[in-house]
Amino acid sequence: MSFMSSEQSRRDAFKLAGLAGLSLLVASPALATPEEVASAIGKAYGDRKFASGKIKMDVPEIAENGLVVPINVEVESPMTDADYVKAVHVYAEGNPLPNVISYKFTPACGKASASARMRLAQTQDVVCVAEMSDGSLYKAKATIKVTIGGCGG
């Protein structure tokens, strides 16, 4: 008998043991994989190169509530007509649809910063891609843990 489990059983286990408040999560369709995120990014950008830096992702290491995980993305840019951030896309590797948020910016935005809440079904990497006005691309990644927790202290 294998212990390889579906996400459904994992949620049921948490709900039953009540070790944390994940019981509100409802059954969801099949989840994306890191490969699907890579493929979605590939589809959008082909084999263009991504630089690192400029993107500041503010996310919790451990989600307090998987239903509403806060994410704040800020991209360093002067936001002038000559040099600004055109768009920011957020991908979640463990969600049914990997592209969870897209933001478009103009120089009039003043700064390229946005906050949102997303639903994360399980521990996963969240990837941000920033498109700059000169055509360059930046990418950043952060792990967010969705856990039943447990407490000792």
């Binding site: 948490f14 290491e61 447990g150």
Partner: peptide, 27 residues
């Protein structure tokens, strides 16, 4: 189920033995 018990143990273990303390919960 036995499968669910394993999931609980794995999750609590990661809460204590994740190599990065920022991903631990203490206890």
């Amino acid at each position: 189920t036995g499968r669910q018990l394993k999931e609980v143990l794995e999750d609590v273990a990661d809460n204590i033995f994740h190599p990065d303390p920022y991903f631990q919960g203490g206890g």
